[in-house]
Design a protein around this nucleic acid. Structure first.
Lengths: 237, 237
DNA sequence: CACCAGCATTGATCGAGATCAACGACCGAT
DNA sequence: ATCGGTCGTTGATCTCGATCAATGCTGGTG
């Protein structure tokens, strides 16, 4: 079980797997690598995509904003994922804003060049299809999560999913501020806090960013996780 | 403004646009057309995809179900769309159940054959990318809708979007049962009914399946529609 | 060190929306 | 026409989560 690396070189990106050196080089001629400081906004919602961004290290957070200015976290994209290829390939305005929470590196490919390369190159197209499909499924999962579960269930399942994906069955470490996690789960930070406290009856112990799971079975019983919502993260993968 | 047709022939599907007659024929050799009666379940959530389904006429409704058995409408797919290509291309279990609400016709392409054809065929791959991207964006819009707006706002914007897309600025006709629309909007049928009543103060009149919009401006002011959530549906397209 | 700013927790209260229940309208079947 | 079923509406009540407000905690800066 080799973990996915967190940092990538422009030439060993999975995106380019199976591409001939020539086409890869041609694509990279239309691209630059950009180091980005925390807090940077990569693009605003409503902007037209000029580049296809690829996360080489670090991550990007995608936010949705309402007319009244409320802002919620919708997704987090990590290396080596594409940042919303859906916008680039349809050449339609971004539906979300992208912000960078940590020091990160991005590959920027000119949108036109990217679209042409995808059209000309079956294996590249295949990679894009895979990426789009994964991202689509994540969105469907999130919708099911929002529509079918209570706030407490969402919080509990979130913690369970974290602990699995971190490989620590008795512990989960929150990956960013509770504020953001709450908005990702479609609740306020206050409700998030209360839900965590409430789940202490189900064998949970909150210590800052670290959540201890004293009784997994009780937690599972309390919040009813579902692989078709929370993701597989079974033995493999 | 020629409306999109509601019924398609196997040979003039946009999916096959730009394909040579030979490859199209080859694909269709691995496919069958199936007429389907209302109420039929095409597949269950959790099933592995055996076919890539394409809607040739009619529609398919996609439902998510929770462990406790609650069921909500997540999306409706109409001709000439692909039915969840994300499941087929990733060869992963369906996250939703597909049910057919009306007499419909589907093209069923063997999943393996479909994947091979996509891999071998850049223009087909391009069509799949476009379809996936559109569907991804719809899911993002729905998430923003759920997380950023109140129930009443969602209902009002839904009616506005309907009237625009039906080309009747002063009227909207609900496309299926209020029951289902409510679950699509993430609320109960009772709340949906009340929200519609409440919006009568904003110039709305409910007559069964027909909703009259007596004062568009007031409705817009009341529920704050946003092209980045509700879709463009501007002058063209 | 003192200070301040941003984040997190906790309490009190409010309100939107869910739930429970009753009723009416519609529709297909016999 | 009568029946039974589904769907929709309306009312009463409840509850979950939002909101408002106060306080605590932490980390960075002078």
């Amino acid at each position: 079980m080799d973990a996915t690396p967190t940092s990538f070189d422009a030439n060993d990106l999975p995106l380019f797997g199976g591409l001939s050196a020539a086409t890869r080089a041609e694509l990279l001629r239309n691209a630059v690598i950009h180091g980005v400081a925390p807090g940077t906004v990569l693009f605003e919602q409503g902007d037209m995509p000029n580049f296809q961004l690829v996360v080489m290290s670090g991550s990007a957070q995608l936010f949705g904003r309402s007319a009244e200015g409320r802002e919620v976290l919708i997704e987090v994209v990590r290396a080596p994922e594409l940042v919303i290829p859906a916008a680039t390939v349809t050449n339609a305005p971004y539906l979300m804003q992208a912000r960078v929470p940590e020091q990160s590196r991005f590959l920027l490919i000119h949108a036109d060049a990217f679209r042409e390369a995808v059209a000309a190159n079956p294996t590249l197209a295949h990679q894009v299809i895979g990426s789009l499909a994964q991202q689509f499924r994540r969105m469907v999962r999130q919708i099911k999560n929002l529509k079918l579960r209570s706030a407490t269930q969402r919080v509990g399942c979130y913690v369970l999913a974290l602990s699995k994906q971190q490989g620590t069955p008795k512990r989960a470490c929150l990956p960013y501020e509770k504020n953001l996690i709450a908005s990702e789960l479609g609740i306020t930070r206050e409700s998030f806090s209360r839900a965590l406290s409430g789940l202490e009856q189900a064998g949970l112990r909150v210590k800052g960013q670290i959540i201890e799971i004293r009784d997994v079975n009780r937690l599972v019983a309390a919040c009813g996780p579902d692989p078709l919502i929370d993701g597989e993260t079974g033995p493999e993968a």
